[in-house]
Design a protein around this nucleic acid. Structure first.
Length: 256
DNA sequence: TAGGCCATCTGGTCCT
DNA sequence: AGGACCAGATGGCCTA
């Protein structure tokens, strides 16, 4: 089931509260509403009881002389809490990534898995990179020999021919100005065809391709494409699907 | 029921 | 020393 920080799973943000509520210092109650957690806690306690002076978390915690089981357990709980928070933050970031993905969003739409989200994000970035390259070509064609400036999403005609040593020509146009190959977006943007309809994981009614999510912003809202603000695009390194057996078909869809 | 996905715990390692 | 990060183990939930 799609479970993350926003789902009804036991990993909901309330977990920390439950965690604090249920884990008493004396270890009497360690249930986190999960059998497994109970088991883990029991195992921990057993381990602690057996370990004698040696702490269960290695020599790192060579505590003075007497470290009560209670203190060790407190430390263990503290570490667990941090790890849980870390994973929650990671899931929040994953949700944020899902929101800006050009995919159908909604309560009735099954959420992308983590691996699918990452693969789609990569594909999306590559598509945007291709779009940017094509945009450079088109701008180069439009402005031909004119050395226009195109910085931060605005065409600055004044600075285009100004004597300013900086940004006389947008870095993106450096290669575009020398390009004269006519082309169209539809034919030369392979990336644009890479955004497919919802794949097999999307269990709802089919949605049109390139359905933009709520968080999507069109060109004007895209991050500044200039080389100053931009992170270099990733190399086209094929992602192997090793170990992703079930995602094999999904990868094909996402990576196309 | 098997497989996929996930949350959590845990111990190790690295960094500050 | 303590926190962040990582990977392995484990078990729950869901779907085909």
């Amino acid at each position: 089931m799609d479970s993350d920080s926003s789902s009804s799973r036991a990993s909901s943000p309330d977990m920390d509260g439950m965690y604090l509520r249920n884990h008493l210092p004396d270890g009497r109650v360690n249930s986190v509403s999960s059998t497994q957690n109970e088991l883990n806690q029991k195992m921990t306690s057993e381990h602690l009881s057996r370990s004698g002076e040696k702490t269960p978390i290695g020599s790192k915690y060579k505590l003075k002389k007497q470290v009560t089981e209670e203190e060790i357990q407190q430390l263990r709980l503290k570490i667990n809490g941090r790890e849980r928070k870390r994973m929650h933050d990671l899931n929040l970031a994953m949700d944020g990534l899902r929101e800006v993905m050009p995919y159908a969003h909604g309560p009735s739409v099954r959420k992308l898995s983590k691996i699918a989200t990452l693969l789609l994000a990569r594909n999306y970035i590559l598509m945007l990179t291709s779009s940017l390259d094509e945009m450079k070509r088109l701008v180069g064609e439009i402005y031909g020999g004119h050395h226009s400036a195109f910085h931060c999403g605005t065409v600055n005609h004044t600075s285009a021919h100004s004597a300013s040593p900086t940004h006389q020509v947008h870095p993106l146009l450096g290669g575009a100005l020398s390009s004269s190959t006519p082309s169209t977006l539809s034919t030369t943007l392979p990336g644009l065809t890479s955004i497919r309809a919802p794949h097999s994981l999307m269990k709802t009614a089919p949605t049109p391709p390139l359905q933009i999510g709520s968080g999507f912003q069109h060109w004007a809202g895209l991050p500044c494409p200039c080389t100053i603000c931009q992170v270099p695009p990733p190399p086209h390194v094929p992602i192997t699907s090793t170990g992703l057996t079930r995602l094999s078909s999904e990868n094909k869809e996402v990576m196309k």
